[in-house]
C-alpha cells in the first residue's frame, strides 16, 4: 500500500481545472436535487456530493482513447472526461434527444465524445469492472496497448460494489491480463445504509490490491491535492505498462443514496469524521493564493450559467413518444427472414 504525501507537486493550473469540474458537478447535482423535489425528473436523482474531489481527479487524467466506466456518483469525473452537461439534463429529464432516448435514465447514460468513451452503467454493482477489463482486452487485441504511454481504462466503484462477485472476478481477470486498468474506489463509508463493518472484514479495502496483482494506493478523498496526486500516479503507472492500479479514497457521501433517501442512518459521529471536499479545496487554494474570492465567484457563476443553459435547452426538447417507438430490442431487424 502506498499513501501519497499530501504535499504534492500538482501544477496550480491542474488544481484550478479540477476545482472547476468539482464546482460544475456540485451545481448540476444541486439542480438535479431541486428538480427531484419539484417532481420534474423522470426518476430519482443520484448525487456525487462529497465525492467530487476523487471523481474529478479520476476523469481529469483521462484523454481521448481511454475508457471510463463511471458509477452513480461521478458527475465530476464524467464532466472532466468531456461529458456535455446537456446530456446530463437530457437523460435525467428522460428526453428523446438524450443518448438513452428516455429508454434509460439518470446515471445510466453512456456518452461517447469523439474517442472519449464512457460505458453505460448498469445498476448491478461490480458488473462494469469486467466490462472495462474487456474493453482494454479489446484494445490490446487491436494493438493499441503497445509502448509505455498507452490508453487506460478507469472504473469507478465503492465500498458496497467491492463486495460483489462481479468485482472480484473482474479484478482477478485484470490482474491476470496485466491490463492498464485503474480502479477508483470511493469508500464513502456507506453501502446504501450499511456501514463498512458489514461490507468487508479486511483491515482496509486497499489490502485487496496485492491479492489481485494490483498496485494499491490510498488517499484522503476530501483532500483535492491528495486525490490529484494519487490518481495521477495511478494513471501514469497504468499508461507506462506497470499493470492494474487501485486507489482507495476515504470520504463520505454527503447526500442520501438517492434524493428519495434522507440518509437518517448517518450518525453524527460518522458525519463529524469527514469534511466536504469542495469548501475544503476552495479554502486551501485561496489560502495558498492560487485563487481569490473574485476568481471563485466567477467559477460558480460560470457553472450556474452552464447548468442553467443546459437545463433550459434539455427541458425544451421533446419527450419520447410511445407511438414513435418501434419496441424492438434487436438491432438485427431482419432475423426472421435471415441475415
Amino acid at each position: 500500500m502506498r499513501t501519497v504525501p499530501v504535499a504534492s507537486t500538482v501544477p496550480d493550473e491542474l488544481r484550478l481545472a479540477h476545482l472547476r469540474w468539482m464546482i460544475l458537478a456540485r451545481v448540476i447535482d444541486d439542480r438535479l436535487a431541486t428538480l427531484y423535489k419539484q417532481n420534474a425528473l423522470a426518476g430519482s436523482a443520484f448525487l456525487g456530493r462529497g465525492q467530487e474531489a476523487l471523481s474529478a481527479a479520476g476523469g481529469i487524467y483521462l484523454r481521448p482513447g481511454d475508457i471510463f466506466a463511471p458509477m452513480i456518483r461521478d458527475q465530476a469525473g464524467r464532466l472532466a472526461f468531456g461529458e456535455d452537461p446537456l446530456d446530463v439534463f437530457r437523460t435525467c429529464l428522460g428526453r428523446r434527444t438524450g443518448n438513452t432516448r428516455g429508454r434509460d435514465g439518470n446515471v445510466h447514460r453512456g456518452v461517447h465524445v469523439g474517442d472519449r468513451r464512457q460505458l453505460a452503467f448498469i445498476s448491478h454493482l461490480g458488473a462494469m469492472v469486467p466490462a472495462t477489463v474487456g474493453a482494454l482486452l479489446g484494445k490490446r487485441l487491436k494493438g493499441e496497448l503497445r509502448g509505455t504511454d498507452t490508453p487506460v481504462g478507469m472504473v469507478s466503484i465503492g465500498d458496497g460494489g467491492m463486495a460483489a462477485g462481479a468485482a472480484h472476478e473482474g479484478l482477478n481477470a485484470a490482474g491476470i491480463e496485466r491490463l492498464p486498468l485503474v480502479v477508483m474506489v470511493a469508500n464513502n463509508q456507506l453501502s446504501y445504509s450499511t456501514y463498512n463493518d458489514r461490507s468487508f472484514a479486511c483491515r482496509h479495502l486497499v489490502d485487496r490490491a496485492a491479492a489481485y496483482g494490483f498496485t494499491g494506493r490510498t488517499c484522503d478523498g476530501t483532500d483535492a491535492d491528495a486525490c490529484l496526486a494519487t490518481m495521477g500516479l495511478a494513471v501514469a503507472a497504468a499508461r507506462r505498462g506497470e499493470g492494474p492500479q487501485m486507489v482507495v479514497a476515504e470520504l463520505l457521501r454527503l447526500a442520501g443514496h438517492g434524493e428519495h433517501d434522507d440518509a437518517s442512518y448517518v450518525t453524527p459521529e460518522l458525519r463529524s469524521r469527514f469534511g466536504d471536499c469542495l469548501p475544503l479545496t476552495e479554502r486551501t487554494l485561496k489560502n495558498q493564493g492560487v485563487i481569490d474570492e473574485a476568481g471563485l465567484a466567477k467559477l460558480w457563476d460560470e457553472a450556474r450559467q452552464i447548468s442553467q443553459r443546459a437545463y433550459e435547452q434539455a427541458s425544451s426538447e421533446p419527450e419520447p413518444d410511445p407511438a414513435q417507438e418501434d419496441w424492438c430490442a434487436y438491432s438485427a431487424r431482419n432475423l426472421r427472414s435471415g441475415l
Binding site: L119, A127, V129, P130, G134, A135, L137, A166, E169, N172
Partner: peptide, 12 residues
Amino acid sequence: DAITGIAIGAAQ
C-alpha cells in the same frame, strides 16, 4: 460473470 462482462466490453 467476468468472462461475459469482458466479452461485452470487448464488443464495445
